[in-house]
């Protein structure tokens, strides 16, 4: 009970189980991502699982597909450059409660 509860997204993701898939179910059109003038780029903060990060040096999008909780917010926010589809059967996040 006295254990500290997680407050950051990273720590909260640590509560989840996944059936890890080495193949990514997500791809990002890097040219269109770089061309997006919004700062910060929406997918880097609307994704509740921190799947997307902008590499400060190359400006490319780093995709941490293994974090994905499969809500779909990213492709609604930025359909122009996020190519998202479900992981194949049996893979991905595995909720116990919710």
């Amino acid at each position: 009970m006295s254990k500290e509860n997680p407050t950051t997204i990273e720590d909260k993701l640590g509560l989840l189980s996944y059936n890890w898939d080495k193949n990514s179910h997500i791809s990002v059109d890097q040219d269109k991502f770089k061309a997006d003038k919004m700062n910060p780029k929406p997918i880097t903060f609307v994704c509740p699982a921190k799947v997307y990060e902008e590499d400060p040096e190359s400006g490319e999008c780093i995709v941490n597909h293994e974090n994905c909780v499969e809500c779909g917010t990213c492709h609604v926010a930025s359909p122009e450059y996020v190519n998202w589809f479900y992981p194949i059967g049996g893979k991905g996040v595995k909720y116990k409660y919710s």
Binding site: M1, K3, N5, P6, K12, L13, L15, L16, P48, A49, V69, C71, G72, T73, V76, Y95, K96, Y97, S98
Partner: peptide, 12 residues
Amino acid sequence: EGGETIEYAAHM
């Protein structure tokens, strides 16, 4: 207060 977080989830 005093509870333990056991799951985090997201959904549209």
